[in-house]
């Protein structure tokens, strides 16, 4: 009875890359392998590399990783399917991820995700018809002091509202330049994957884009330097029971 059950395994044998693509990727792969004492450590960055070629991890990409590293395709597939950043189907140029872990969800992430689904006419992990945007909900992205947070191609869009998020996806679909609150002007998902493979972003101004720390990162420092007027007289420990946390 199990013959019709799809396990989502790649069909074998996987086709190879065209010779020129193979040669180019092989040079990149060698550079990655050289960073590590043991070649297998190159597997995660190499999966980012093949994702930068095709926008998702294909069976061809997995075969390539296996050949370069002397692994079986089964070993590579086992790793590629474990990690959520590796996509397993064709997706959009811009991955819009709405944080719906508890804090962002409560602060408005749930509302933003619902409105974006309606606005774009897609569900979770689905792509708009024009191939521009893949929408998904993501887990905590270490920016809770900027909640609610939306990540686009893993750049930070802090303190979002349903309105700001809808405008942002409209701009992306219209081909307008979109800049995050923290990070560099957006490049495509494939270009982002190449940075993740360990190849620095060569675009002028990309490293310094949006300046130093974000505003929330600085509130403690500004208070300590007396740059923010104190909100109230503080009470010594234990003497303000009637006013706590108001």
């Amino acid at each position: 009875m199990t013959e019709n059950v799809s396990l989502g395994m790649p069909q074998l044998p996987a086709p190879a890359y065209p010779a020129d693509v193979h040669a180019r990727l092989e040079a990149d792969a060698r550079a990655i392998v050289d960073r590590y004492p043991d070649s297998r450590s190159a597997l995660l960055p190499m999966l980012h590399l093949v994702q930068s070629e095709e926008g998702h991890v294909t069976r061809t990409g997995m075969r390539f990783c296996a050949e370069v590293l002397g692994l079986t395709t089964a070993e590579v597939t086992a790793v590629a399917t474990f990690y959520t950043m590796y996509r397993r189907k064709p997706s959009g140029d811009y991955q819009v991820g709405v944080c719906t872990n508890t804090l962002c969800a409560v602060m408005g992430g749930d509302a933003i995700f619902e409105e974006l689904k309606q606005h774009l006419g897609v569900g979770n992990d689905e792509t708009t018809d024009d191939g521009k945007i893949t929408l998904e909900h993501i887990e905590c992205n270490a920016a809770c002091d900027f909640a609610p947070v939306v990540m686009v191609n893993w750049e930070f869009f802090d303190n979002q509202t349903p309105e700001s998020a809808k405008k942002m996806v409209d701009d992306l679909r219209a081909g307008r330049t979109v800049e995050p609150t923290r990070g560099a002007p957006l490049c495509t998902f494939k270009e982002t994957a190449r940075i993740l493979a360990g190849f620095p972003d060569e675009r002028p101004g990309a490293v310094e884009a949006t300046g130093g720390a974000g505003p929330a990162s600085l509130v403690g420092l500004r208070l300590a330097k007396g740059e923010i007027p104190q909100h109230r007289i503080v009470h010594p420990r234990g003497e303000a029971a009637s006013q706590e946390g108001e």
Binding site: S217, V219, L221, Q230, R232, V234, H235, E244
Partner: peptide, 27 residues
């Protein structure tokens, strides 16, 4: 983070209390 007046990073000696952090940052 969360429903506070001033979410953000506060670098302090270990042992500060949440009340002290909230009091200085607007609750």
């Amino acid at each position: 983070s969360g429903h506070v007046a001033s979410p953000g990073q506060y670098e302090a000696p270990l042992g500060i209390t949440l009340r002290q952090l909230l009091d200085m940052s607007g609750g």
